[in-house]
Amino acid sequence: MKMMPTKRICLLMIAAGCLFAVPLLAKAQAAARASESDDIAVLVNASNSTSHLSLLELRAVLLGERRYWKNHVPITIVLREPGSRERQIILAKVLGMDDAAFKAHWKKKLFRGEASSEPITISSKSLILQYLDTNPGAVTFLAGNNSRGGDVKVIAIDTRMPGLPSYPFR
C-alpha cells in the first residue's frame, strides 16, 4: 500500500483543523474579556485593607448602616449619575431599590442624624477614579473595562471576582 497519499491526507486534515481552531479560540478569549468588561466591579482605594465583602455587608454599606471600614476609615460612597447602568444594577441587585427610593432612604438618614452626608454622585469615570486615588475610604462601582488604572483595587463580592460566571453584578 502507498504511504504517501495517506500521510498527505492526514497532514491536510491537521492543517485544516488548526486553521479552524485558531480563530475560534481567539473569539472565545474575546468573548471572555467582553463578559468581564460587562461586569460591574466594586472598587476601593488600594490602601484599603478590605479585599472582599459579602452581599449583606455591601448592603449595609449602601444603606449607611455601616459607616466605617475595618481600619476605622470613614466610608464614602461614590456612584455614577442616576440612570447610569452601574447605578441601576447595583441599586436593584443589592438593595432592591430604584433611584427615587435610594434618595428617599438617604434623606431619611440625614434627617434622623444617622448620616452626615449623602453618597457622592460623579458622572465622569475618570473623575471617579481620580477621587478613589486620593480618598482612602471611597468605594465605587464601575463596569470592568473602565476600572483599571490608578491606585485602586477590585474587591470580591461573596468571594467572587468580576469575570466569573457566578459574579452577582453582571
Binding site: C10, M13, G17, F20, A21, L24, A28
Partner: peptide, 22 residues
C-alpha cells in the same frame, strides 16, 4: 505506517471536537 495515520486522525478528531464545543 498506519499507526501514524491513526494518531494523526485521533489528534484531528480531538481538535475538531474541542473547537466545535467552543
Amino acid at each position: 505506517g498506519n499507526r501514524f495515520t491513526v494518531h494523526l486522525l485521533s489528534l484531528f478528531a480531538f481538535t475538531a471536537a474541542f473547537t466545535f464545543n467552543l
